[in-house]
């Protein structure tokens, strides 16, 4: 499998602040990678560097095997979009579609117009008159219609309501099957996205915490619930991510692969075993322990 994106020891500083610190990741061809991370973790910085919009402080970033900045052969096969791309505000949507058609070789104008119709957007509307949700839809469908070999969407569903989001995911997945390409989607709503992802890239404070296939991520941890003593006994020799004790429920998240044996040994201790959704795993892996602070609020 080709590596569409590869970074080695990538660092980016803004003044004193490290937005990205020593990040080494790979993203393979024809995958749909979810770029997950909290606000300020460096998602947008990473995407901008990969799109050739931002300079690097140290390390390397390669897209299609080359450095992306000012590299027209890379940039012609790449589209980076977000929920509020700035265009000439007074332009009508149809004209913006024409601009896309002009600038991107593989742009499918007919497809874009059908999507506009599907999402009930009128080509005669001016961009500035769009609400946030409509702008997100518009930018999403433009990026999708580019059929660019690398399509990077930065929080594309911001402002979209639930029904529209579901349609967007379905359309994305469907178009991916018709025209395979590499997607990187940065989002907060991992649970909604989970089905269509093939890989996860979790970053926190500018560093890559996870860079794996989603199935591996699903298998990499499990949760046990039960009495405190049982949990304590069970976790004595295990690698745990987090443990919580309260009146109603005690649980621990074990950072080891789930196997049949696990169920047996857990059940022996009276513990119940359950799945950890990737979204929850990401939260556990990156949360800072603010629970005491939370309690102090009241």
């Amino acid at each position: 499998m080709n590596e569409v994106i590869k970074t080695t020891n990538l660092s980016k500083q803004f003044g004193k602040k490290h937005a990205l610190a020593d990040m080494s990741i790979t993203i393979s061809e024809n995958s749909i990678t979810g770029l997950i991370g909290r606000n300020g973790s460096g998602k947008t910085t990473l995407l901008k560097i990969l799109a050739g919009n931002l300079d690097i402080t140290s390390g390397d970033a390669f897209v299609f095997g080359e450095k992306p900045m000012d590299n027209i052969s890379v940039l012609n096969n790449l589209v980076y979009t977000y929920h509020n791309v700035p265009y000439e505000q007074n332009m009508r949507l149809q004209t913006i579609l024409s601009s896309y058609n002009l600038m991107f070789n593989n742009f499918d104008l007919e497809f874009a117009e059908k999507l506009m119709h599907y999402f009930e957007l009128d080509g005669k509307m001016k961009y500035k008159s769009l609400s946030q949700g409509m702008a997100s839809i518009f930018n999403f469908l433009c990026a999708l219609s580019c059929r660019a070999k690398l399509t990077m969407l930065d929080e594309p569903v911001l402002g979209m309501d639930v029904t529209v989001r579901k349609s967007a995911y379905e359309i994305l997945l469907r178009d991916f099957t018709e025209h395979p390409r590499t997607f990187v989607i940065s989002s907060h709503l991992l649970s909604e996205l989970e089905g269509l992802l093939s890989d996860i890239l979790l970053i926190e404070q500018g560093q890559a915490v996870l860079n794996e296939h989603i199935d591996d991520v699903r298998q990499s941890a499990y949760r046990i619930d039960g009495t405190k003593s049982a949990i304590d006994e069970y976790i004595s020799d295990k690698n745990i991510i987090t443990q919580k004790t309260s009146e109603l429920n005690c649980f621990a998240v074990i950072y080891e692969p789930y196997t049949r044996e696990v169920t047996l040994s857990a059940q022996n201790l009276g513990l119940t075993v359950s799945q950890v959704r990737p979204e929850d795993l990401c939260v556990f892996l990156t949360q800072q322990n603010k629970e005491d602070e939370l309690e102090c609020l009241w």
Binding site: Y169, E170, L173, R174, T177, G195, L196, L197
Partner: peptide, 14 residues
């Protein structure tokens, strides 16, 4: 593979 991916809303790789 494609039918499954589409109907069940999962990634074709899965």
């Amino acid at each position: 593979q494609l039918i499954i991916a589409r109907e069940l809303r999962v990634n074709p790789a899965t």
